Computed example of a mutant assay.
Amino acid sequence: MIENIPLPATDDPVDSPFWEGTRCSKLLIQSCSQCGEMRFPPRPMCPCCQSRECNWQAVSGRGRIWSFAVPESPLLPAFEALKPYVTALVELEENPKLRIVGPLLTSVDGDIKGVNAAQVAIGQQVAVTFKYFAEDVAMPCWVAQPENSLGESDNEY
């Protein structure tokens, strides 16, 4: 666990199912019970049809890097100890309009430190993993995935 960093409240009724999912290593996304529109971050009302009814569905946790940053000093003191690190904004495979921020890790069980920003690229495939930052807070983090198992393009010949 990482100490002294600001953490989200996990008991807010609007997004508590999201945090319950992360503690079980599941990426749950809120969707409208009326029109089916998926949304993130969670909200009390659907932005498409204004329904207040929602449900939560598990998604694959696969996506592509839409943007990324390497935070520089000055940082909050708690984050200084973590640098250098890369934070990614990831568009989910199920719906590219759904984007989730999280740190890139060196591996599934890896550390936040050590990701070489020069090897990170927009469009790079990633998969979610979960890292505990406190006893009740498991944050979604991202790990780079190989483009394909053969190292070749996806084009068929």
Rank of each mutant, 00 (worst) to 15 (best):
I2C: 08
E3V: 13
N4A: 13
N4H: 14
I5A: 13
I5C: 15
P6K: 10
L7V: 10
L7K: 05
P8Y: 01
P8V: 04
A9G: 02
T10S: 02
D11K: 15
D12I: 06
P13I: 05
P13A: 07
V14S: 04
D15F: 03
S16L: 11
F18K: 05
F18E: 05
G21D: 08
R23F: 08
R23Y: 08
S25P: 00
S25D: 08
L28G: 02
Q30E: 01
Q30H: 01
S31D: 10
C32N: 01
C32F: 03
C32P: 00
C35D: 06
E37M: 04
E37H: 08
E37W: 03
E37L: 07
M38R: 12
M38Q: 13
M38G: 12
F40S: 09
P42E: 07
P42I: 03
C46P: 05
C46I: 04
C46M: 05
P47N: 00
C49N: 00
R52N: 03
E53A: 02
E53Y: 00
W56N: 03
W56I: 05
A58W: 01
A58T: 09
V59H: 05
V59M: 09
V59W: 04
V59L: 12
S60T: 15
S60E: 14
G61H: 07
R62I: 10
R64N: 08
I65D: 02
I65R: 06
S67H: 06
V70W: 06
V70L: 03
V70Q: 11
P74L: 06
P74K: 09
L75K: 14
L76Y: 06
A78Y: 13
F79S: 12
F79P: 11
E80R: 14
E80P: 10
A81C: 15
A81R: 15
A81K: 15
K83L: 15
Y85F: 15
Y85W: 11
T87M: 10
T87Q: 06
A88H: 02
A88G: 05
A88P: 05
V90A: 02
E91G: 04
L92M: 08
L92D: 03
L92E: 02
L92Y: 05
N95H: 12
L98K: 08
R99V: 01
R99L: 01
I100T: 03
V101A: 13
L104F: 12
T106E: 06
T106Y: 13
T106Q: 10
T106V: 11
S107H: 06
S107P: 01
D109F: 09
D109E: 12
G110P: 00
G110E: 02
G110H: 01
D111K: 12
K113E: 08
N116T: 10
A117L: 12
V120T: 09
I122R: 11
I122K: 11
G123L: 00
Q124T: 13
Q125G: 04
A127Q: 14
V128G: 03
V128K: 02
F130H: 15
Y132D: 07
A134I: 13
E135G: 13
D136F: 06
V137L: 11
A138T: 14
A138D: 14
A138R: 11
P140N: 08
P140D: 07
P140S: 11
P140W: 14
V143C: 04
A144V: 14
A144I: 14
Q145N: 00
Q145D: 00
Q145E: 02
E147F: 00
N148K: 03
S149C: 01
L150A: 14
G151E: 03
E152H: 02
N155S: 13
N155Q: 12
Y157F: 08
Y157N: 06
